[in-house]
């Protein structure tokens, strides 16, 4: 365990995580809106927003998959110390997966849920270079009319929505900002 792993958590966990969860919930409830979060200072390459999501949602009951360049010793140590979440080698075992889009894709292999329990599906926390309310067009629950979000691609998200009620849910993170993309959102090229 490196000393660096011990820092960067919430200063006042009950209150910080309550505020952070509100932002995450608003993001997931309103696809296309970008929320700002604070409170986590995770080691690189994890963004503040992804770090906040991990602190709010992960614990010993949620296996985490670290994709590509996110599978670092520092990050394993930080997640292990602050959340107790086990880091798994197989994406299919994960409830949460962390990484950049290129490392997380293709989306085959993650838990999609079961017809009788569609909630037993993975949530992907995607690190983005930019996150803007423009680009791909979103419609569906949580969206009045239409929304737009700078997604890394369209086809994978469109296919994911086509599996509804099965499917993956996404938290897209960039710096201290995050947006949600649940499986219920229909995605078209903008």
């Amino acid at each position: 365990m490196e000393a660096a792993a011990l820092g960067g958590g919430f200063g006042d966990a009950p209150v910080d995580s309550a505020r952070a969860f509100r932002a995450v919930m608003r993001a997931m409830a309103r696809p296309g809106t970008v929320e700002v979060v604070a409170g986590a200072a995770p080691p690189a390459p994890l963004s503040v927003a992804a770090g906040v999501a991990v602190l709010v949602l992960c614990d010993p009951g949620t296996p985490v998959y670290l994709a590509g360049g996110h599978d670092t010793r520092g990050l394993r140590g930080w997640i292990g110390f602050h959340t107790g979440a086990p880091v798994v080698a197989e994406r299919g075992d994960a409830m949460f997966a962390l990484g950049v889009w290129e490392s997380l894709a293709p989306l085959d292999g993650y838990a999609l849920g079961e017809p009788e329990f569609p909630d037993r599906s993975a949530t992907l926390i995607v690190e983005m270079d930019r996150l803007e309310p423009c680009g791909a067009r979103l419609t569906g629950p949580g969206i009045k009319g239409g929304a737009a979000l700078s997604l890394p691609e369209v086809a994978a998200f469109r296919d994911n929505a086509a599996r509804f009620p099965l499917g993956l849910d996404f938290l897209l993170c960039c710096g201290d900002r995050l947006a949600g993309l649940p499986r219920s959102s229909h995605v078209e090229a903008g």
Partner: peptide, 21 residues
């Protein structure tokens, strides 16, 4: 406690992602 809230929060996010389920 915080662990209970995390469990409930995860359920709320899945509930929002699958409306009505």
């Amino acid at each position: 406690d915080e662990q209970t809230k995390r469990m409930i929060r995860r359920a709320i996010l899945k509930a929002l992602a699958i409306p009505g389920y």
